[in-house]
């Protein structure tokens, strides 16, 4: 155990120089959240189908992820996701949206993504890398069981061929059920 007040006295004896060195670093401390995100970003190990874009390299809290699947239904397309990391990271997950309009069972037309680790199953031990892999997996294995775009999910379950055709049509720039999808082929 420490004795608070003997410590307090020592602090006083140190006097000016103690507070002086404190003053030099004033306002320059890096928060634990900032350290954690720096580490996450520095240790990103992206699969070759993914790359990141940082509009402002000094701001590690806002960036884009581009996924270009090289197999599966979405091969040849390019999909952009926005990442926003809040001050309570990693207690809270980053906010992630799909900026490319996509015909996908687990992504709705407004870009909301249904991926468990983005919401109900997020844990502080997960990293940005976990989310990147989760998103990439969504393109390899779209999951019709937990749909966000119900039409797409129904199609995938009812007729895989037709679903695949729909995916290709939308990626080339075309309409499904009156909704226009912009071209997103590489």
């Amino acid at each position: 155990m420490l004795n608070l007040f003997s410590l307090k006295n020592e602090q006083k004896e140190q006097g000016g120089d103690g507070s002086g060195s404190g003053g030099a670093t004033k306002g320059k401390k890096n928060s634990a959240a900032q350290l954690r995100i720096t580490k996450d970003i520095n240790e990103l190990e992206l699969p070759k189908t993914c790359r990141t874009e940082f509009p402002d390299p000094d701001d590690l809290l806002n960036f884009k992820l581009l996924i270009s699947p090289d197999e599966g239904f979405y091969r040849g397309g390019r999909f952009t996701f926005s990442f926003k990391i809040g001050p309570n990271y990693p207690h809270e997950p980053p906010k992630t949206k799909c900026l490319t309009k996509v015909y996908h069972p687990n992504i709705d037309l407004d870009g909301n993504v249904c991926l468990n680790i983005l919401r109900e199953d997020w844990k502080p031990v997960l990293t940005i890398n976990s989310i990147v892999y989760g998103l990439q997996y969504l393109f390899l294995e779209p999951n019709p069981e937990d749909p966000l775009n119900k039409e797409a999910a129904n199609e995938l379950q009812a007729n895989r061929r037709l679903f695949e055709q729909n995916v290709h049509r939308t990626m080339r720039g075309g309409s499904i059920n009156g909704v226009y999808f912009e071209r997103c082929l590489k």
Partner: peptide, 12 residues
């Protein structure tokens, strides 16, 4: 953690 419901449950 904050209680978050799965987005697909909320949506459908």
């Amino acid at each position: 953690p904050q209680v978050n419901f799965p987005l697909c449950t909320i949506a459908h």
